[in-house]
Computed example of a mutant assay.
Amino acid sequence: MDRTTHLLYLHGFRSSPSSVKARKMADTVQSQHPGVTWWCPQLPASPKQAVEMALQGVSAWPRDRMAIMGSSLGGFYAAWLAQQLDCPAVLLNPAVHPARDLVAYIGEHPAWHDPSQKVFFEAVHVQELAELEAQPPSAQARTLAVIAKGDEVLDWREMLAQHQAGRVRLLEGSDHALSDFDNDLPEILEFLRLV
């Protein structure tokens, strides 16, 4: 199987390319795999616009040598995009039912990494998530789901049930942010065909 030459990273709700995991992956790719094309865009609040932006951004990428990573809501997007593009994806504590979970967050919110930046999440965005969720999952999952039982935001049982068709790294503790992310990197890099 060919080595990965193009890697897309998708951050979570109210997050950014400045998240700890995104920066850690960017640094790892840059230092250990400088020939790999890395793209971690700032995603719009609109799920429809987020997946369209990602699809357009990778449209010229080689399908057999690309991979996707995503965290939380970005993990939901990554799983959806991996099905559309038939490429491997690493899902970090991926959201499973974001339309249900984010309906309580309609309104304006500060961004995690820069509270001066605002995220405007609208009712139409919940509908867009519901439409993405309604697409049936692929029978052949090419995913590695890193799931923390200690996730304080999402239910690990739902994540496991949704992604057990693929490879799963189930962590006994940890948290939603995967604070011990360094421990997961070797398996992630191997799955992404970067080692």
Rank of each mutant, 00 (worst) to 15 (best):
L171E: 02
A67P: 01
H163Y: 14
M53E: 12
D180K: 10
S72K: 00
G12S: 11
S46W: 03
W61S: 11
P34W: 10
A141G: 00
H6M: 09
L194F: 06
Q30W: 14
Y9M: 11
V51F: 07
F76P: 06
Q30K: 11
L154F: 03
L81K: 01
L55G: 06
S138K: 08
D64M: 13
A54M: 12
H6V: 08
I68R: 01
H33S: 04
A60R: 12
P17W: 02
G74K: 09
A79Y: 13
M69V: 12
L154V: 08
F181P: 02
A123T: 06
P47L: 12
V153A: 09
G150E: 06
R167F: 03
L192V: 15
E190D: 11
R169W: 11
W112G: 07
R142F: 01
R63T: 07
Q49T: 10
V146G: 02
E190F: 08
S59R: 15
V96T: 15
R65H: 08
L129R: 06
S179H: 09
D114G: 00
A95R: 06
H125N: 07
L154W: 09
P110W: 01
F191C: 04
V20R: 15
M159P: 04
I147N: 02
L73I: 02
D184V: 11
A82D: 14
L194W: 01
Q135N: 11
P17C: 05
D151W: 05
L10N: 04
P110F: 00
